[in-house]
Structure formats: structure tokens, C-alpha cells
């Protein structure tokens, strides 16, 4: 982007997010669960500007589901997840079904180690990710905000790492900014902050710390006005990215006048 361009956006031609060779138009990934209605969900996805949308893979029910998420979002880049899986085996099976159902090799690998905290089981996660990478999947693991785990996942060939900002659905924001900054600075693959974002400022912080993207669901779906919050997140992610690229001023413990100190009237 040029210095004279007054309409800078985080999605300028030379600042596209690239995952596994795929250039993406938005640094916001959006989830599709928990909206008041499928119509509001579709409107929110549109307002978010997100290209990547997450979906889950579930058994068809005997009752049948009136709403068809797949049809509603046709044209989006689907990132199916393995949400709810507690073993590598189940996550692998879910990934294989997702690849067949959606004709995509992209998979958000989530292996939950504890139903109360929804914390990742990193041991099972590593097993699942290694298998899926070897099987040709484009693997994006939901993982702890642990620099070593993120490094191991990148080393084994994951296309991105998706450390938690804080607990899934908690809205606590980036619980450990120092860790996230460290992960972003060291990661050879894009870092997508997944889980915990509660409002726009949380997304800005994640992006300012160096995240390549944010994956947000609950903060949008459960907002009083999901469509408006989706738009807010779109701007927040772009603003945070721009601020990260622009480089913030150092923090100081004292005042620094911004206006000239010479030629004061009356002195």
C-alpha cells in the first residue's frame, strides 16, 4: 500500500492473508452457530465481510432440520470443524466426512480434553493433526496459547495455528497478551486467534499483537444485534491489522507535549 493512499485498508493488495497458498480477502473468519435465526446468520456473515466460514459436521437427525446452513452459505469458503471430538480417532473420522461433504481439504481440528473448560487435548490434537497433514488435509488446529505447542504444530505441517484468546464462548478476550504476542512473533505460519473474543476491542488487541486473523462466533451470534456486531468485527480486525503494520508508539510513564513548546502566547 502506498503512503499517500488515504483509503488504506487492511485488505490492500499487498496485505492479503495467505493460508496454504490461498489468498484470502478478509482476516475475519466467522462462525455460523447460535444465531437467533438462519436469516440473521446469513446477514451477519455478509456484514462481516468474511470469506472463511466455519461449520460443523453432524449426523442428520430423524426429525430433519428445516434450515440448511450449507445452502444458505453457498459460495463461502467452508472451514469445517471437528468440534466436540474428544479423541484423535473421532476427529480424523469427522475430518474425512467433512472433506467428502464439502469438497474441501480445509479442516479446523478441535479435540476437546475437558467438557467444562473446552480446553484442547493437545496430545490427541497432535496425533490427529499429524495424521491429517499426512493425508493431504489443510490443517488449522484450535490449540492452547502455548508457543511450544504452536511451534510443534507448525513444524508438522499445519497450514496455520489457531491458539485460543481465552475459553470458548467466554468473551474474556485475549487472556494472555504476552503469550499471544510471542506466538505471533515466532510463528512461521499464520496465527488465527480462535475463541474468547467478546467485542470489537478484543479483536483489535489480537490483531495489534500480530495475529494474522481472528475466528469469531459467539461474540457475533449472541450480541443483541448480531449483524451490527459482525460489521463491528469487520472494522475491528481491519483496524487492528493496520495498527499492527503501522507500528505503535512506545508506552511512557510521563507526558510528552505534542504541540510546539516555542512561541507560546503570553510567554
Amino acid at each position: 500500500m502506498t503512503r499517500h493512499d488515504t483509503t488504506l485498508t487492511a485488505q490492500g493488495d499487498d496485505d492479503l492473508l495467505e493460508i496454504a497458498g490461498q489468498k484470502l480477502t478478509s482476516r475475519l473468519f466467522i462462525g455460523t452457530a447460535g444465531y437467533p435465526s438462519q436469516g440473521i446468520m446469513a446477514d451477519a456473515v455478509r456484514a462481516s465481510g468474511a470469506e472463511v466460514v466455519t461449520v460443523s459436521i453432524r449426523r442428520v437427525s430423524l426429525q430433519g432440520h428445516g434450515s440448511d446452513t450449507f445452502q444458505k452459505l453457498k459460495g463461502a469458503r467452508f472451514l469445517p470443524n471437528t468440534a466436540g471430538c474428544e479423541t484423535a480417532r473421532d476427529a480424523i473420522m469427522t475430518a474425512e466426512l467433512a472433506r467428502e461433504a464439502l469438497d474441501t481439504t480445509w479442516i479446523k481440528v478441535e479435540v476437546i480434553g475437558n467438557r467444562e473448560t473446552l480446553y484442547p487435548d493437545v496430545v490427541e490434537l497432535m496425533v490427529a493433526c499429524r495424521h491429517l497433514v499426512d493425508d493431504g488435509f489443510t490443517v488449522l488446529p484450535y490449540c492452547n496459547d502455548d508457543p511450544v505447542i504452536c511451534e510443534r504444530l507448525a513444524d508438522m505441517g499445519c497450514a496455520a495455528v489457531m491458539p485460543m484468546g481465552s475459553l470458548i464462548g467466554s468473551g474474556m478476550g485475549v487472556a494472555n497478551p504476552a503469550n499471544l504476542e510471542l506466538i505471533c512473533r515466532r510463528s512461521p505460519v499464520p496465527v488465527v486467534v480462535d475463541a474468547g473474543i467478546g467485542t470489537a476491542s478484543d479483536a483489535v488487541i489480537a490483531m495489534e499483537l500480530g495475529a494474522a486473523a481472528c475466528l469469531i462466533n459467539t461474540a457475533v451470534a449472541k450480541a443483541d444485534d448480531p449483524v451490527r456486531m459482525a460489521a463491528a468485527m469487520r472494522h475491528a480486525v481491519a483496524a487492528g491489522r493496520l495498527a499492527h503494520l503501522a507500528g505503535r508508539i512506545p508506552r511512557r510513564g510521563r507526558a510528552e507535549p505534542s504541540s510546539p513548546q516555542l512561541g507560546l502566547v503570553g510567554s
Partner: peptide
Amino acid sequence: IEIVRAMQGG
């Protein structure tokens, strides 16, 4: 037999 489909998800 498992028959699955894409559904809403995060």
C-alpha cells in the same frame, strides 16, 4: 452407516 451433513458450527 453414518449419514452426516454440514451444520452451523464455530
